[in-house]
Design a protein around this nucleic acid. Sequence first.
DNA 1: TACACTAATTATAACAATTATAAATTAAGA
DNA 2: TCTTAATTTATAATTGTTATAATTAGTGTA
Lengths: 148, 148
Amino acid sequence: MSEKHLKDALDTLKTTGVRITPQRHAILEYLIESMTHPTADEIYKALEGKFPNMSVATVYNNLRVFREAGLVKELTYGDAASRFDFVTNDHYHMICESCGKIVDFHYPGLNEVEQFASHVTGYKVHSHRLEVYGTCQDCLENAGKQIL
Amino acid sequence: MSEKHLKDALDTLKTTGVRITPQRHAILEYLIESMTHPTADEIYKALEGKFPNMSVATVYNNLRVFREAGLVKELTYGDAASRFDFVTNDHYHMICESCGKIVDFHYPGLNEVEQFASHVTGYKVHSHRLEVYGTCQDCLENAGKQIL
DNA sequence: TACACTAATTATAACAATTATAAATTAAGA
DNA sequence: TCTTAATTTATAATTGTTATAATTAGTGTA
């Protein structure tokens, strides 16, 4: 399953004329396997065992390459670090405001929002971004304990 | 109309025990009157005529105060500068990917998305964020001209 | 397989947005 | 008016990210 994702991703890169380096292979692999929407720095730290000489710039450069190839989405949060998400199929993010944990969920058909928005603003619509903020169950439970 | 907004905002601050300084008054006034969702730096530059000695830190500090009081929303965009939006009633943003222009639009009832997301993830939901990306009419026209 | 060409990596410095600090100033209630 | 704690200011520090230039290493071709 994730094997296939990796292979597909590498194929996509090849056909776009992007070289497959060991670093790129490792970053992609890590992105696909980790379910945690990591930051560039987390990727960097996770791979420094395998690549002691790798530079942060390499991570950033390659994340940009992947983003431009459509393999990866960047989730931006002000001056906090961006998080990177391997693109599988369309999904949205639920974010815990207490601990920052992000989980995916699917929701069908917000196309009508795009149509509506395009109609009232006159913009030609490309895409949209939806995120839901709340508190995850772990944090809810911890909050409960503190009251006791 | 915007007079009333300003008065209400100042009242809110007063009841929260926040002092009304000339700088705060001016920043709020600028936020309410400008329809452009300014960055902290834009606010700083816009007011440096009135307050030649004001520091950027003051702008940032007060935007945080306003945010915590619920008067202002911060729109974050990765390493680009945050934009600040005076809260009137709920609306969403349509953002031009070509020139960055942001316009507001209203859309009723995405509550069901929140309910759905809460159900599938187990999170307790507080809020959500929706943005639509596209190209504004000005940029569409300019693109047309370049082809000719 | 070896070569050549170009892209990618590395190390480092630069940058820009934001925040922390400490001293000076000031709003607002008594 | 006086007092006091909050706020502002000026500056330095921090953090995420990108630019630069030199070195290294994929990959197509002979």
